[in-house]
Design a binder for these strands. Structure first.
Lengths: 140, 140
DNA sequence: TATTGTTATACTCTATAACTATA
DNA sequence: TATAGTTATAGAGTATAACAATA
């Protein structure tokens, strides 16, 4: 069966997305390498917009809680976040320290600066991309 | 210094891209898991549009040549590709077998089917996204 | 001597399973 | 008994370094 035009375009788009994803990853790694900072930790820092409980972070990063425990250990060890029990005392809440907030801002700037996503697109295109990516991220 | 609106938007876009990239990766893994096929191998197969020398694949996947050697071993072992010396006899050229081409088509379809990028966006949005992603992938 | 690929090894990222503490 | 997190361990993915063959 010959693929329909839509199928063909979808395949190409899927391939494009894979390639763009590779690009995003290498841009990201290059950006955070300047801070001598492992990419997964950088991702966690950037996700900590507000204090978050560990299970929540695990959901956001779509990874296992045990891995968040590791990342949290590392963040605390570096003085970038604190761990404190929540109202439900089984819960641990991660909060960025001032140093963590500071680093987060620097990481965000560096990631943005190194990002082909940002550099290769006009402001208008970036807005469009933002809308499209929101659709993807918020997909069921 | 308060970040300019542009800086703030760029940071948000960078974060969005990271999240979308995570989404793409998990979609991709889910899609190829059906074939009991490791994601990196699937990526390699999808990149083999034409016969390619190994160094070229390494560049496309932005990874080390030694890793391509591994992937190639695996592809050949599975009967999905052949390795043959090029005109320059230092070079090895990877070519998909008919079975490899067949699997590539199936992978492309599955990746497309599982892709939030495809499912969450209209055809028009997909076209727009394609243009934007091309800009990223072809960035210097 | 420079380039292409291979081999052996080691490191990073992440999951699984068993466990502890609180609910 | 169910849920949040931790610990120990194991596996996948990928790089580094030393090497071989060809140019």
């Amino acid at each position: 069966m010959t693929p329909s035009p839509t199928q063909a375009n979808s395949s190409e788009l899927a391939t494009l997305v894979v390639r763009a994803s590779e690009r995003v990853k290498s841009d990201f790694a290059r950006a955070v390498a300047v801070f001598d900072f492992p990419p997964p930790l950088a991702r966690a820092v950037l996700l900590l917009d507000q204090p978050a409980q560990m299970g929540c972070l695990a959901t956001q990063m779509s990874c296992d809680q045990s891995y968040i425990t590791r990342l949290a250990d590392d963040l605390v060890k570096r003085g970038l976040a604190t761990r404190a029990p929540g109202a439900d005392r089984r819960v641990q809440v991660l909060t960025l320290t001032p140093a963590g907030e500071d680093l987060k801002a620097k990481l965000a700037t560096a990631v943005s600066r190194e990002s082909s996503v940002v550099n290769a697109l006009t402001a208008t295109q970036q807005s469009e991309l933002s809308v499209l990516l929101s659709g993807i991220v918020n997909a069921p």
